[in-house]
């Protein structure tokens, strides 16, 4: 039985922000696997009067490729509704005239096509998966240790995520490794950075208290949204673990079995 105290806010809600991996689908071989009920749930949200956006720390593909995949899985989603870290970091690089050394997944490289990468003066790391080899980590380390003022951007700071064949280390682990090696603090682009959530709220034209975030990552989705003034609900799918419900620093406004149940509860409360 789901804890229902959070649902009181459903009536005054104007928008919902959904995390993607672990909420809509589990990633893995090929396109991954749809989490049962999620395609329907997105459809029902779209048919309601709530605004809908998607917010992901996915950094293995360009947004276009990523949205293609979700459409193949049956989701009704378009590129402008999806917020991901690569376009955000490209904007920051431009603004600060920085030339990155990239340690990212091959699939996301096209997002950086028009960025000057010669003679790098910062490092950008994303979820590079198999590209997180000792050699590639060493190269990133040497760029940083050779800079007078080393700058490290991390596209998210997730600890791990779930693929169909098990849990996998996320970019945050490698961010921490480089932080420790170089004695520096990375700048996180993406969830849980308040700047990132705010850009989604701006796009919806909503105040934080008018929006609800639904995600499987307690710290980055739920905690990040709450930090920004939004409500945060965790689903028991994806990387969810029982211990999340007694986390020392983050308490979700609600915990539900899956996205379908969350959407049911919200829409019922609103009298749909």
């Amino acid at each position: 039985m789901a804890d229902a105290s959070w649902i009181g806010c459903a009536k005054s809600l104007k928008g919902v922000v959904l995390d993607m991996c672990g909420v809509l689908y589990d990633s893995g071989e090929g396109d991954g696997v749809v989490i049962p009920g999620s395609v329907e749930a997105v459809k029902r949200l779209r048919a309601s009067d709530l605004k809908l956006r998607f917010c992901t720390n996915e950094t293995q593909a360009t947004r276009e490729k990523f949205v293609d995949k979700l459409q193949r899985l049956g989701f009704d989603i378009s590129v402008p509704e999806v917020f991901s870290p690569p376009p955000a970091v490209v904007a920051v690089l431009k603004e600060r005239s920085l030339r990155p050394h990239l340690l990212v997944y091959d699939g996301v490289l096209p997002e950086f096509d028009f960025v000057d990468k010669t003679n790098p003066n910062c490092v950008v790391i994303g979820d590079a998966a198999e590209n997180f080899s000792y050699q590639n980590m060493n190269e990133a380390f040497r760029v940083l240790i050779g800079l007078e003022k080393p700058v490290l951007f991390s596209l998210g700071q997730g600890k791990y995520y779930k693929e169909t064949d098990g849990l996998k280390l996320d970019v945050g682990v490698y961010m921490k490794a480089l932080e420790y090696a170089c004695d520096l603090k990375a700048e996180v682009i993406g969830k849980p950075s308040p700047v990132f959530f705010q850009s989604v709220l701006n796009d919806m034209g909503l105040q934080p208290y008018e929006a609800l975030m639904i995600g499987d990552d307690l710290v980055n989705d739920v905690g990040g949204a709450q930090h920004c003034g939004m409500k945060g609900v965790q689903v028991r799918t994806g990387k969810y673990r029982l211990s999340d419900e007694s986390h020392p620093t983050v308490t979700a406004d609600g915990t539900v079995d899956n996205l379908a149940q969350a959407v049911d509860m919200i829409l019922n409360q609103r009298g749909h």
């Binding site: 040497r142 280390l169 945050g172 682990v173 490698y174 921490k176 490794a177 090696a181």
Partner: peptide, 17 residues
Amino acid sequence: GLALGPGPFVTGLEYAT
């Protein structure tokens, strides 16, 4: 040149878990 020691990888695993 310089190369990463075990510390960064230990620290990463500590963070992950």
